[in-house]
Design a protein around this nucleic acid. Structure first.
Lengths: 343, 343
DNA sequence: TTGTAGGCGTTATCAC
DNA sequence: GTGATAACGCCTACAA
């Protein structure tokens, strides 16, 4: 099967003995063209198998109708929900999504950003990598006034627009809940404290302790990458302590569940000996026994809002509000993972 | 901050008093250009903040370096792994990924396909929607000889290239395993039988029964959308049966776990009363108690292979083998969900 | 209401 | 080795 040349507006024009300009206008439904001409052109276009050439169009209009997305990892429950939400909104608004993952490395994030820049994305949505400590690699976007929007893992809330939840508040609430269940000896497991999500959760945790006259010591903090492996390791670390904590708040569910299961394996009773709380409301959190108390926030929704906000900024150009948007969260109390309820 | 015009190869040419052609060649490291000139050009290009214009390039070369991906849903554990794998391979090979979801609707799948076509993707990766019963909407790709590759949920293995696992074999094996554990009264829950994955799993199931002289009756088959809700509903349906099955094979883990949990809620003992087996090795399958026996196949790997295969076809043009590739799977036996082990 | 013409930034083909 | 030039397909002043 030979690859026939693409049909262009010139071919249509020639076929109908009119100008290419008229064809171009008709195809975009320009008001100045008579209905009869339009009709005729649309018909022949379809008949000849015409499809508009996005590049020529982009080249001409200096616009791509494409949004770039950079996330730490694509294969996490939360992130896949976010992406799903973004795709939905973008698709409905006629935008395409170019997606890439930094694999939690600032270096790859920078490379991805450069690729996005060269691909002339109209706007960029970013959730930062684990070790990103500056955003020089996004400078080109800022300088060229290409809308840049962070979500979830944002950068300097004051200076750069972002979509987040109130991690501080959520952590505070869930810690208070643990305290109200009778925990006095609380432990916190979280990620890199230079990422807003983890720093905020940690601060919320500390404040809750302070507000309830519970001492905090650095001994009660463990920083790891929040993976299943590290959760398991954390369990063993806990077991080596002189006094076992009676409550553990982990900054994500994956790690919380891994830690919980390993402790149970080692004979610790949950929640009788230790209460647990996680973060994210991952499906595993309600399947595990005992079920895990956690913080819920809707990934799909965050993705939708992020895409909407970016697109709005694209349309209304600069004057759109550059505020950081804080989405709601919700405590999911699952009594079975908490002390009081079962004792 | 004013948006300055983009730097082009002409600007560089003018700056250095050479021709644009030379600049173009230098930037692509053409061998015919002297090292000295190259050096000079590269330096000024960087200095002037030049970035190549993808559209102009694409327009000229009739190639986009972009792969399209259409999946049923982005927010499933399996699919996010697949996408992660694809992104990795594509990225390394210098391709971008445009991703969209059909939300399990053939109609949306068709719209997405049209968008991909208009965006001139160099190739297309597709996992079919729940209700897709023909692939007329991919005809334009086939006619234009644009490589089209199905994965996981493929179409007519004989005629169209695809990446799959041997669903038949996997289902056969897991069913035999249930039988070997002592199950005599087996039930199967699966999805739309016009999708290869579900049809094949069903056939494997039936063959295993036949090979072990176990009767099969349509009463022992339930077709639903394999969601959590339907899993729960399935549990109640089972409870209404005159005789409870002693083994259930569900075509995915999500539904299997939901069904299991609901049955346990209703007082059924797993695995003493009913053995369970699922499919996919979703994280929840090893967190749930009792753990679920299941079939594992690596989403990331499938994504990588799919992208690699497509890109290979892109490079070696037509003569590449158009065979369907069957990837390995693995039975994950978790004794606790199976009768014999505990009884 | 329609047509003309020039340019968007690159690269391929010829020349030299 | 390097330069001139002509597409690639579309859009949009400006003209008619």
């Amino acid at each position: 099967m030979s690859i026939s040349r693409e049909v262009t507006i010139y071919d249509i024009a020639k076929e109908l003995n009119i100008s290419a300009a008229t064809v171009s206008r008709s195809l975009k439904n320009h008001p100045a063209i008579s209905d009869k001409t339009k009709q005729k052109i649309l018909a022949t276009a379809k008949e000849m198998g015409y499809r508009s050439n996005t590049f020529a169009r982009n080249l001409r209009r200096q616009k791509t109708n494409t949004l770039g997305v950079i996330v730490p990892r694509l294969n996490s429950t939360f992130m896949s929900e976010v992406i799903a939400g973004m795709e939905k909104v973008a698709n409905e608004a006629g935008y395409n999504l170019i997606i890439s993952q930094s694999l939690e490395m600032m270096k790859k994030e920078a490379i991805n950003a450069a690729t996005m820049f060269n691909n002339r994305v109209d706007g960029l949505l970013v959730s930062l990598a684990y070790d990103t400590d500056n955003i020089a690699h996004f400078e080109p976007f800022i300088q060229k006034n290409i809308p840049l929007l962070f979500f979830d893992r944002i950068f300097d809330q004051q200076q750069y627009a972002g979509i987040v939840i109130n991690n501080y508040q959520a952590a505070y609430e869930i810690t208070v809940h643990l305290i109200e269940q009778g925990c006095q000896n609380l432990f916190h497991i979280t990620g890199n404290l230079s990422r807003n999500v983890y720093a905020d959760r940690f601060n919320g945790f500390r404040q809750a302790l302070a507000d309830h006259q519970i001492d905090y010591s650095p001994e009660y903090l463990l920083i790891n990458n929040l993976s299943t492996q590290e959760g398991k390791a954390a369990a063993h670390l806990l077991l080596q302590k002189k006094t076992l904590p009676d409550g553990v708040f982990v900054a994500n569910d994956t790690c919380a569940v891994a830690c919980m299961l390993e402790l149970m394996e080692q004979g610790i009773r949950i929640p009788e000996d230790i209460s647990f709380a996680g973060f994210n409301n991952d499906p595993i959190s309600c399947v595990v026994k005992p079920q895990l108390t956690t913080v819920h926030y809707k990934g799909i929704y965050m993705g939708e809002i992020a895409a909407q906000t970016l697109i709005k900024r694209l349309n209304h150009s600069q004057e759109a509000d550059n505020q950081t948007i804080v989405l709601p969260h919700e405590l999911i109390i699952r009594q079975s993972s908490l002390k009081q309820a079962n004792s």
